[in-house]
Design a protein around this nucleic acid. Structure first.
Lengths: 128, 128
DNA sequence: ATACTGTTATTGTTTTGATATAACAGTTAA
DNA sequence: TTAACTGTTATATCAAAACAATAACAGTAT
């Protein structure tokens, strides 16, 4: 688990941390039950504030990726954790709903929308 | 074309204006070639800054909804305007791509994703 | 010339991101 | 119990970005 932050800016530090940890959880690099490096360890090694790290961990907890236990540490949740799954499914639906709204503005039909989705799914698949 | 702003919400004024004008264009309330009320008219009637209105108009122009001509006014583009259609299709694809990314994180299959889309499409249809 | 149009520069206010410091609270092992 | 670690919370400060207002600028038309 190698955390890095880039000062090229645009993306907040806590957001960069969140993304890297999410990716590590979803890829399996971080196993269920494994402890993340402590707030102060991350803060010290990356030369950032403890609060910034805490924000990343807190938001990851709200999204179901990890669970924090005061005095012990911050532990990775399994990919099949109910809260995590629920969160991701809800976000998927939100994205789809936005796509539907925009599609209706252009006058795309149901069939055309499914077609677009299919095309994008195949493009994604080529990247594997 | 009745513009209204609500100060209660966290939505920026220029964004509120954009949404209402977009809706009016897409619904046909504003016809192609029709002139929007001038910057200063809107600013005066809504008691807001000219700059705020200008921002709304400028962004609408970048998205292909209207076209501004210095010294003359701001005119509505047709719903079939190529730039507008391209913009909306691109946004639809972006939303779908985000949905795909999130769906893959939960492990949703292609079929399940299409299913979700179908369900949401039917819910939308009930609202007509 | 005037009276309208959109555009842009400057400025000020508010919000957001990040920080430092400190105190607080729970866990673990010497 | 004490010491050394964990996460949590409160306060204050700073910089940058987003939002908006004023005023000057520039084009169009009568």
């Amino acid at each position: 688990m190698n955390l890095v932050i880039s000062n090229v800016m645009g993306i907040p530090i806590y957001e960069q941390l969140k993304r890297q940890i999410k990716a590590a959880v979803l890829s399996g690099e971080l196993q269920e039950g494994e402890a993340l490096p402590s707030l102060r360890t991350v803060a010290r090694e990356l030369r950032i504030s403890v609060l910034t790290t805490a924000r990343a961990y807190t938001e990851l907890e709200q999204e179901g990726f990890v669970v924090s236990i005061q005095g012990k540490g911050c532990y990775v949740q399994g990919r099949n954790n109910a809260l995590l799954r629920e969160h991701l499914v809800r976000r998927t639906e939100e994205h789809l709903a936005e796509a539907i709204l925009t599609a209706r503005q252009v006058g795309l039909s149901k069939k055309e929308l499914h077609g677009l989705l299919e095309i994008l799914l195949q493009e994604e698949h080529q990247g594997d």
